Amino acid sequence: MPLATTRRAGLVEQVIDQMRALVASGEWLVGQRIPPEPELVSALGVGRNTVREAVRALAHAGLFEVRQGDGTFVRATSELSGAVHRLCGSELREVLEVRRALEVEGARLAALRRTADDLRRLEKSLAERDAAVAAGDSEQVVTTDTAFHLLLVECAHNPVLTELYRGFTEAVRASVATTFSLQPERQEQVSHTELLDAVRERDPERAAAEAGGFLEEMLHRLGQPEVTDSSA
């Protein structure tokens, strides 16, 4: 998606919209450095201050990360995802706790509401994930496992829940990568077959239990967090 020269009115908003579209389309990937300021100024036909203001706004929203002396990098695929990523940071426990809240309810609702087409898509997604596990392709495991969980939440047919989870995708992906790296000897044992069976059989309680089981195990391994009582 090429950059287009902007109109005079609402220049900053137009630049923000174009940059947001480039990220959403995959033209600018997460982790990638965006073009330098002079290049953006030339491509957009606006002044440096307009570009700087747009970049500053998207950095504040969590979409970009400005690294002094190194450039500006794409941090997330959406402002919501960036905000969630900024809040969670690298704290695995916090991410797993939020995943548990969203995925357990997503699985429960999916068991109640899934369609025949949903089930076919889930079966295909899980087969791709299991194939990646069998091949020992850790990067593909992370991609396909994250995709399976997102699809499962989508099958709950709750747009608000789905949008919240989509905004959490980068954090989910990071947590999947971390949990797999923490226990490489168990990769082949991590299975979502029982979870899919529960959704197939329209058993919401079993689906919820299966969705939360592995997350509960990981949280248990991490132990209890230290909490400071400020009122003491």
Rank of each mutant, 00 (worst) to 15 (best):
R7Y: 00
L11D: 05
V15L: 03
I16E: 01
M19Q: 09
R20I: 05
A21M: 10
L22N: 05
A24S: 11
G26I: 04
V30D: 08
V30G: 05
Q32V: 02
P38C: 05
P38N: 07
V46S: 06
E53A: 13
A54G: 02
H60E: 15
A61K: 00
G62P: 02
E65M: 08
D70E: 15
T72L: 07
F73M: 07
S78I: 00
S81W: 04
G82R: 05
G82M: 04
R86L: 14
R86I: 10
G89V: 01
G89R: 06
S90F: 12
E94Y: 15
L96P: 02
E97Q: 14
V98C: 10
A101L: 15
L102W: 12
L102P: 09
E105K: 12
R114Y: 09
R114T: 13
A116D: 12
L122C: 06
V133Y: 04
A135F: 00
A135Y: 02
V142H: 00
T143K: 09
T143I: 13
D145S: 06
A147P: 01
L150I: 09
E154V: 03
V160C: 10
E163S: 15
R166W: 06
T169F: 12
V176H: 00
S181E: 10
L182P: 11
Q183G: 14
T193H: 15
L196T: 07
R200E: 07
R202L: 14
P204T: 11
A208M: 07
E210H: 13
A211P: 08
L215T: 08
E217L: 15
H220V: 13
R221L: 15
R221Q: 15
Q224Y: 14
D229P: 05
D229F: 11
